[in-house]
Design a protein around this nucleic acid. Sequence first.
DNA 1: GCCAACGTTGGC
DNA 2: GCCAACGTTGGC
Length: 151
Amino acid sequence: MNHWLMKSEPDMFSIDDLKKKKTSGWDGVRNYQARNYMRDDMKLGDLVLFYHSSCEVPGVAGLAKVSKTSHPDPSQFDAKSDYYDPKATKETPRWFMVEVEFVKKFDEVITLTSIKATKGLDKMPLVQKGSRLSINPVTEHEFKIITDMAQ
DNA sequence: GCCAACGTTGGC
DNA sequence: GCCAACGTTGGC
């Protein structure tokens, strides 16, 4: 099983929103590397660190898991959507997404500050300067450290 | 609001 | 194919 970190702006979609909806398609990703992770590498049941970005307290807010593997992101076909891509067609979709299911919300956000201060997490793309990919693989070890911090 | 870092676009 | 210009990300 693989582990992942997925960023979301909580003003747009937060861990509470996912808790309410139970599952959600991870639409709107328009970066090829992030798309490739979803299309090629994310497997059913993979666990996901749900990260809140661009907010007051950036950090990991909870856990989700992959509940449906890669399928075309419908927002690319929707001319009214912010994520509309005129170059994409149903025959040859350009953007793919997975669906994630709520697992748990942490009692407290594992803050970016504390992640940066924790041994063993310094290799995470999240803490690398200039890294801004919205989906990143997480090692089993890193995943365990972070979920342990949430206890 | 600032700005560094990075990705994409498009003219040539 | 190069690369300048532009847009976006995301912490601070």
